[in-house]
Design a protein around this nucleic acid. Sequence first.
DNA 1: AAAACAATTGAACAACTGTTCATGTATAGA
DNA 2: TCTATACATGAACAGTTGTTCAATTGTTTT
Lengths: 127, 127
Amino acid sequence: MKVPECAGHDHPKGRRARLVSEEALDRAARLFRALGEESRLRIVVALSQGEACVTELAGASEESLSTVSQRLRVLRAENIVVRRRAGKHINYALADAHVTELVFNALAHASEVPARPKAVKKKSTKE
Amino acid sequence: MKVPECAGHDHPKGRRARLVSEEALDRAARLFRALGEESRLRIVVALSQGEACVTELAGASEESLSTVSQRLRVLRAENIVVRRRAGKHINYALADAHVTELVFNALAHASEVPARPKAVKKKSTKE
DNA sequence: AAAACAATTGAACAACTGTTCATGTATAGA
DNA sequence: TCTATACATGAACAGTTGTTCAATTGTTTT
């Protein structure tokens, strides 16, 4: 007996129409990748509370200036943060509202999920 | 002459109050990391158009079943996609609306930015 | 039950990325 | 101008991650 498979098909090997441009995809992936490190994400979250200079960020995480600066470099390369000189210091801030939303969205998703389902393997619970 | 520096401070080394839980941060970072690969993101974008089975996804990207399956495994580990058997095939779909929003947000951010500003170094345009 | 199809998984190697250190640059103050 | 402060950067090493192959599991069909 035939069961319904995927979208009525027989799996043509041709590639489908581009949904988004290659470049946008590449940039979006880079953006995600930059946010995908706990240490960098921590910085971004900190900056979502307001701008801060490198020394402050380093102090808050008890890490070296250099280390933090390297992280900020990555974030800056993806236009996640912007900087601006303020006297001796250089203040960093989130680049735009998209970034803030992105982070909040991710945190929302992160707290919704039931901690690694792990497929509780009972007898015949197929799902 | 004293210029305003960071938040009225003298850089106390103490760590500030936790803004979000360690666990949420970790999960969010993992989520971002999973989305931060062009190949996986491509799959997610494809699934934002509707569910599809592994064979379809492999066909669309002209890659091996195994490769695609491995990618789906990563996405599944972060609860980005869910699967469901449909006859011979296993259909994958985005897990929830958060994911869709996340992707659209990222793509929006990606297309907003003017292709690597690169700090057009004029004479005294400090910004 | 056997064959065919669909998808998953473990392991291995290559490629990538983060952290650290040492050095370099820019601004402020004396 | 000289020194101190604040930050950035290049290079190197280690840890992480992606892709591929071979073997395995689960489902449908004959």
